[in-house]
Amino acid sequence: MKRAFNVFRHNPRDAANPPRVVTYTLEETPGMTLFIALTRIRETLDPSLSFDFVCRAGICGSCAMVINGRPGLACRTLTAQLPNEISLFPLPGFELIADLSVNTGKWMRGMSERLQAWLQLREQPDVDALEARMEPAMADAIYELDRCIECGCCVAGCGTAQMRPDFVGAVGMNKIARFRLDPRDARTDAEFFDLVGDDTGIFGCMSLLGCHDVCPKELPLQTQIAYLRRSMARQGLLG
């Protein structure tokens, strides 16, 4: 069976390479994923097609793109589960490198710097001592939020992010939720409020929750955002 791929093409550094959609046709093979299809297009039809795959196993987050209008990981999308005609576009909201390749890394670094999204320990660990103990249930709860792969799907699926380039997205709020949960982190709610308590953070969210629907890791974004909003509202009102 033949399958048509309508792929966005554009090199923003080349005036002679304007935005356009190019259609490639491939024979479907059993178990074909978008990773296999795009690799085959590059190897047999057009060697210049740019896209990003690194782990091709759904754990690195490099290959997120808009697949028939919905952000998702291309490596674990089977073509057999899509209609005959497949459209592929780069994730919106990120700097375009070329074709389907976008610079999510630059965006994520900027967001992390702004939100100070790293563990800020109460005290420096002693390398010779046993590690500080943590209840396994707490460790599991932290890991549940730590599973984020920073693929950018939640930003691409977010209404606010399309209107406000400085919005931190669900990925940013999830990070705050993760560090807020961690008993080793020294920060108080007043400090978290300074980081996330405005319209570029938790109060910019319109609760459309596209992020929750498209998250490939099925992170509990709806719950985390609601919980963070309530805590930050309390902090803002009562101090």
């Binding site: 090199n11 550094r13 080349d14 590059r42 060697p47 210049s48 097609l49 740019s50 490198i97 070329a98 390749s101």
Partner: peptide
């Protein structure tokens, strides 16, 4: 394709 920038 012989461009020297992003070129797989």
């Amino acid at each position: 394709a012989n461009n020297l920038d992003a070129n797989p």
